[in-house]
Design a protein around this nucleic acid. Sequence first.
DNA 1: TCCGTTTTCAAACTCTCGTTTGAAAACGTA
DNA 2: TACGTTTTCAAACGAGAGTTTGAAAACGGA
Lengths: 205, 205
Amino acid sequence: MTRPSDITRDRILKAAERLFAERGYDATSVRAIVARARVNQAAINYHFDGKEGLYREVLRTAFRGLTEDQLAHADDTAGLPREEALAAFVRRQLHPLSARDEASRYMRIFNWETVRPTPVFRKLMSEEAAPFMGLTVDLVRRFLPEADQRSLMVAAIWLIGQCSVFVRNREQLAGPPVALELDDMAVDWLAQLLSRWTMRGLGAA
Amino acid sequence: MTRPSDITRDRILKAAERLFAERGYDATSVRAIVARARVNQAAINYHFDGKEGLYREVLRTAFRGLTEDQLAHADDTAGLPREEALAAFVRRQLHPLSARDEASRYMRIFNWETVRPTPVFRKLMSEEAAPFMGLTVDLVRRFLPEADQRSLMVAAIWLIGQCSVFVRNREQLAGPPVALELDDMAVDWLAQLLSRWTMRGLGAA
DNA sequence: TCCGTTTTCAAACTCTCGTTTGAAAACGTA
DNA sequence: TACGTTTTCAAACGAGAGTTTGAAAACGGA
């Protein structure tokens, strides 16, 4: 494997991932991508059938990367008491805060999409978000056993939203007027705080 | 006042506000703006010294409009019991869900900025967001009278984040796999749900 | 009314974008 | 080695972007 052509493909993907995360789809030019990847300009059209096709590929990678972490632990948490399962879920959702890795970039790509979703993203979302949403709904159901489906859905989004506001706005929150510096220890502290408030909110002791 | 030239200026501002809110800065062309405003293409450069100057002006308007809107209700809520004050705050934060008015557009322009803040926006934010944050911190302090400043800050962001996740992602949440349709009645129901969970989370009965 | 200023206008300019092209190079297999 | 295929490459294309231009029109005080 790893034929020369695959190397080119990979370099493009890596460069595109970084640039899309940093500037968004529109503001990222094909020329900027090929310059960073040090490949020819026509390579994107050859390997990905255009800029949009490349973006689709990057989005897929990002989505898998973000959700597989939670999905991989789905079985573990199912065996835990609901309080511990929730705490673990929150801690994992906050993970991009304590690591400047792929997950942070993936999150950033998603941020661009939340304001005005591209058709590519909409499709991906409607096709592949179900497992993750299901997992989250299952979790909140353990606290709201009698709630209807719509309430469970809202509770799941509520839970996700509480975490994502910190992840999304980390950079801004670091500055005035909030000045919230989040080192690794602070992230653990934050996770505990959020877990406690969420559990109490959903009616646990 | 309202000389003919001011009318042109105003038409451009109104059209730009709508288009920037809808599509963001990059994806909005000056040709689209002048078409909607029904003015000549050169008018933007004449009156605002270019697209960027126009955006700066729109951003200023948006910021003023939003902060005035939020802070105008600060006095009302100060007199209410903390539970009612919180409910009113949540309902107010969810307002863009049920109205397509100026405030919703302003919020949307801000959403664009949270992904990749322009220098103009950063400055505006660090200088003028303090009153709104202060208001929110005051509100959560009524539930956490003994908490330190950092916890209060986190609680304030937590509160804001719970609401904004529904506002920001309204379009996506309407589709699969969530399929959360939010008409006016549903927004009221959602506001009640969020208020209740938040209050319990922060330790109120 | 007259005249200098302000404002509008259609057209063109320059730049960057994503994509296409056709040939050259590299590759894999017999 | 020889040959068909895959992959790379430099160059150019057409579309759309923001801006500039210079003249025409509208305005406003004397």
